[in-house]
Design a protein around this nucleic acid. Structure first.
Length: 613
RNA sequence: GCACCCAUAGCUCAGCUGGAUAGAGCGUUGCCCUCCGAAGGCAAAGGUCAGAGGUUCGAAUCCUCUUGGGUGCGCCA
């Protein structure tokens, strides 16, 4: 397993000062950098006998303190180790302080509160850090933490029976952004879509398309019968079938035309879905066919069941009826069951239907077995809220199939409620008045859709207001972050106007006299920038891309604050005509802010804008 | 009946996997600005973190129960 220490284990220069090279493989994360220092100090204290040799330092953390007056970096080292050392935390903290005070980057070391060790870094540390941020460019924040591990992210997986519904949007965006995030942190990500092309629903789809086929041949089909898909998006399928087959399908028995119509319908519906997803900038690497599991030779579902049977995880038995409301057609019967309860599920799960075919769960097990066999020890599934009930059984399945060697994290995206200027948008499946993904994207654009969908924790409900996401105010985070980026770009355009010869790339500005940035608000922005790698790593570890959206809002807020100071105090403006050196240094800060916003938006899959209009 | 998710300021929500005096936006109140470095700025008030126990140096965060809301609940996909 990867731990924070892994990425600094090769660190060789405990007495050297902080440079890009030293922590290059640590994504310039100053917190992991100093965490390594604390671990070194702990080792030294073990050697001295202050700490027991077998002390467990796993819960030692290094974080930014909540209150800026507490310095730049804080650690709980003395508090988590106090008990093991049989010492008062504050006394142990003094030992850590003794070990760390020689560090050339540390200006001040305080022991505070119950035993926190607070570190204030030397003023010259920050210009060096800003320089390394500028030199890092688009790679600033990137991390090797994933160590190239293969991760399979399955998301969307909507039934190929029609266009994408707005309800699919959140999971689609979430899965895509999470994939970006994991790729940015050194994982080998495969983006996968499971196509449910084997069940009864695609037969219904085929029959629905067949109606449209007859319609395309000129027949008056009247109303689409109950139970079939009425959507007019199937007209194109009917026409395509008519063009391809003429009247030949018409006189065939259903058993003959159904596979042909079904294949064509699924193909066209997947094209439709791919187009919808592309409108949001989403592209999967693999579209995995459920049908391929049962049609393949040998049948992979059978193989899966046999595997489990050999492990003694399959039995024939009866399930107790669910308590409370009993299904109308409940009949007790013996069935083939998977011992899901051995792996934390509530009940054992049926694998074979009464007609002898496999259940959806059986093929889902085979599907995850396929993922395992394709070398994925790490899997993430993004589900909608309506599938929350499947989490336990899927985890049980993966635990059984992998013998506990693989992990599956199922992320549930809660519902999205649509509003139009504060009024809920009514949606009714019965009347067919549902809002499609495409309508939302076409109305507000992909950027605002993506940002807003990621601006909530995935397991909390989300309100999406068509009016709000286009509003130009601080209240609208999409605007506020984009505005910061546009402002930064605007400053740089002005800089170039003033000094056309000045090189304004980040790499060039890394050579500016960044130590001239001494205003409190300027340093606050640099410090905020220093948090970025940490936000990235924690968001990746927790599988929570929304943290990036919130970070960007904070960064934008800090940047706007700096801009506003320039209004009150002209000497703090970014561009000082009479002082090229300070202008260049501030340009470096502005470019770094724009760079980090661009980087974060890139992970969220949002196109930054360079000019407000 | 059972399982899972949620509950934090008047409203909408963060809270970095257990840290210090719980944060932001909106709204409210009070000042400032009318500036194209535009699509405002500063400040203040506002909290029993749903409730009750427990775990420990320390809990909004972890455990148990209760209350209120959401989502599901034999072989459907």
């Amino acid at each position: 397993m990867t731990t924070r220490r892994d990425c600094v284990s090769g660190y060789q220069a405990p007495s050297g000062s902080f440079t890009l090279k030293d922590i290059g493989n640590c994504s310039m994360n100053i917190f992991t950098h100093f965490e390594a220092r604390f671990h070194e100090a702990a080792e030294a204290l073990k050697a001295e006998g202050v700490l027991p040799a077998d002390s467990n330092t796993a819960s030692l953390t290094v974080e930014p303190p909540r209150d800026a007056s507490h310095g730049d970096i804080a650690s709980n080292a003395a508090m988590v180790l106090g008990k093991q050392a049989k010492m008062a935390p504050r006394d142990l903290a003094a030992h850590f302080a003794r070990k760390l005070e020689a560090d050339p980057d540390i200006a001040k070391l305080d022991i505070a509160g119950p035993g926190f060790i607070n570190i204030t870094l030397k003023p010259e540390f920050w210009p060096r850090l800003l320089k390394s941020i500028l030199e890092g460019g688009d790679d600033y924040g990137r991390s090797a933490r994933g160590q190239g591990a293969k991760v399979n992210v399955e998301y969307v997986s909507a039934n190929p029976t029609g266009p994408m519904h707005v309800g699919h949007t959140r999971g689609a965006v979430f899965g895509d952004a999470l994939s970006n995030l994991l790729a940015f942190t050194g994982h080998a990500v495969t983006r996968e879509y499971y196509v449910n092309d084997a069940g009864a629903q695609v037969d219904v789809l085929a029959r629905s398309a067949f109606m449209r086929y007859r319609e395309a041949l000129g027949e008056d089909i009247g109303a689409i019968p109950e139970g079939l898909y009425p959507g007019d998006y199937l007209q194109a399928v009917g026409e395509a079938l008519a063009a391809e087959y003429g009247k030949r399908l018409h006189n065939m028995p259903e058993a003959d035309w159904l596979p042909l119509v079904r294949a064509k319908s699924i193909e066209m519906m997947l094209d439709l879905i791919r187009t919808d997803l592309a409108a949001l900038g989403i592209h999967h690497d693999v579209f995995f066919s459920e049908r391929s599991l049962v049609e393949g030779k040998p049948n992979q579902v059978e193989e899966t069941v046999e595997d489990l049977r050999e492990q003694g995880l399959i039995y024939e038995g009866m399930l107790a009826p669910p308590k409370g409301k009993l299904p109308d057609d409940w009949e007790e019967r013996e069935q083939t069951l998977f011992r899901a309860t051995d792996f934390g599920d509530d009940v054992d799960r049926a694998l074979v239907k009464s007609d002898g075919s496999y259940t959806y769960f059986a093929s889902d097990m085979a599907y995850h077995r396929s993922k395992l066999r394709r070398g994925f020890a790490h899997m993430i599934n993004v589900f909608g809220a309506d599938h929350a009930g499947y989490v336990k059984r899927m985890n049980a399945a993966v635990a059984a199939l992998s013998h506990g060697d693989a992990d599956l994290d199922i992320k549930i995206c809660q519902m999205v409620r649509l509003f139009r200027a504060g009024e809920p948008v009514k949606m009714s499946k019965r009347s067919g008045s549902f809002v499609t993904l495409r309508e939302v994207v076409d109305e507000v654009g992909p950027g605002p859709v993506r940002f807003m969908m990621l601006h909530r924790k995935n397991d909390a409900m989300l309100d999406f207001d068509f009016a709000k996401v286009l509003e130009q105010s601080r209240d609208n985070p999409v605007f506020y972050v984009q505005y910061a980026h546009a402002r930064a770009q605007s400053v740089m355009r002005n800089v170039q106007e003033l000094a056309p010869k000045l090189e304004t790339s980040g790499k060039d500005l890394a050579g500016a006299r960044l130590e001239l940035l001494q205003d409190e608000a300027e340093l606050a922005v640099v410090k905020r920038l220093s948090h970025y790698p940490r936000i990235i790593e924690s968001a990746a570890e927790a599988h929570e891309p929304h943290r990036i959206a919130f970070y960007l809002y904070e960064l934008a807020s800090e940047f706007h604050g700096l801009w506003n100071r320039g209004k009150e105090l002209p000497h703090l403006r970014f561009i000082i005509d009479a002082d090229r050196e300070i202008t260049r240094a501030r340009a470096g800060l502005v470019v770094a802010v724009a760079q980090v916003i661009r980087s974060g938006l890139g992970i969220l899959g949002v196109q930054p804008i360079s000019e407000m209009r």
